[in-house]
């Protein structure tokens, strides 16, 4: 019982601690590809620390939604953090939620951010919210189908079970449907984390921004919470990718050595994924909003192919 609670708490702490680091690492790798020096990988920590010390300026038009939204989003993302395997596959709360629940929790976070974006009455906020919801409407069917593909492969939507099964299968788990589903989910991860072909996390250009436009009215501590939840969400999406498709090295039992190794392996995995993401970001340009459905229908088709090839290969 105590070990279970310890696992849950340590998982939350590790997620909170690693999330800004991942952001910093991706920025650094991106800078490397763009032949810049780039900020230190600890910059996001400094940013958040600074924001937490600052006072905030709040619009006079806002209601309680504006104040509550960052906290609710953060809570939703942290709840998802309880059921996404990070370093150990046997999570105490794994029975409480599965892959679908994670999707809905992310949707809840997004819903409240979009709601808050409308609250201040600024037209930028509305623009961001509108775009975010449009992208979400395209992402969610694709995400559902890719989950379907993953669940088909393993026979369950329970995340702990998925990562356990796949890691027990070893290298024989690599199959065409496995890879296709991975690519499909990777495309969705780009959209979910707001990265380049979909959204540009590093600009405040009104013509293109989506997520940044939504949180434009936030400042100080509230902005810090919004930023942290975006980072945590990013880390969770990455650990989903890592631990659904390549869970090898994850600790299956509670042991000090196993967990230490698992943490190290996890770090390596997310750095590799981050490098991949940075490569994609550097090599493509931001797409026009109305071309995004095309990108997501590619993801949709890949999941579909994954399902079809699973059925064909396993003799449907």
């Amino acid at each position: 019982m105590i070990s279970q609670i310890a696992i849950s708490i340590s998982q939350i702490i590790i997620i909170l601690a690693l999330a800004p680091l991942l952001s910093g690492i991706i920025k650094k790798i991106k800078a490397f590809f763009q032949i810049r020096k780039g900020p230190s990988i600890f910059q996001p920590y400094y940013d958040i620390a600074k924001l937490l010390r600052k006072d905030s300026v709040i619009s006079e038009n806002v209601s309680w939604i504006f104040h509550a939204a960052p906290v609710i989003s953060f809570a939703a993302v942290l709840t998802a953090g309880l059921i996404v395997p990070v370093f150990i596959s046997q999570l105490p709360f794994s029975f409480a939620g599965d892959l679908i629940a994670v999707v809905y929790l992310f949707a809840l976070a997004r819903f409240f951010t979009a709601l808050a974006s409308l609250d201040a009455g600024s037209s930028f906020g509305g623009m961001g919210g509108s775009r975010e919801m449009f992208v979400a409407a395209m992402v969610e069917p694709a995400l559902m189908l890719s989950i379907f593909a993953v669940a088909l492969n393993v026979g369950s939507t329970n995340l702990s079970l998925i990562s356990q099964t796949v890691s027990a299968m070893g290298l024989s788990a690599v199959s065409p449907y496995h890879l296709l589903a991975f690519v499909a989910l990777f495309i969705i991860a780009i959209a979910e984390t707001g990265r380049i072909p979909v959204d540009n996390p590093s600009t405040h250009l009104e013509l293109t921004m989506i997520h940044e436009a939504m949180i434009l009215e936030y400042s100080g501590k509230q902005l810090a919470i919004v930023e942290i939840s975006a980072m945590v969400k990013q880390l969770l999406v990455f650990s989903l990718l890592a631990n659904i498709f390549f869970p090898w090295g994850i600790a299956t039992k509670i042991s000090a050595v196993g967990i230490a190794v698992a943490l190290l392996v996890f770090l390596i995995k997310i750095v590799i994924l981050g490098a991949l993401m940075a490569m994609v970001e550097t090599s493509t340009a931001k797409w026009r909003l109305f071309r995004l459905p095309d990108l997501l229908s590619i993801s949709l088709m890949l999941s579909f192919l994954s399902i079809v090839s699973f059925i064909i290969v396993n003799g449907g």
Binding site: Y177, L180, M301, L305, V313
Partner: peptide
Amino acid sequence: QLLIALILASTFLILGST
């Protein structure tokens, strides 16, 4: 299997690019 699936995927890449 992997190669065949990738061939299929590349076909979809052709379909999906502008």
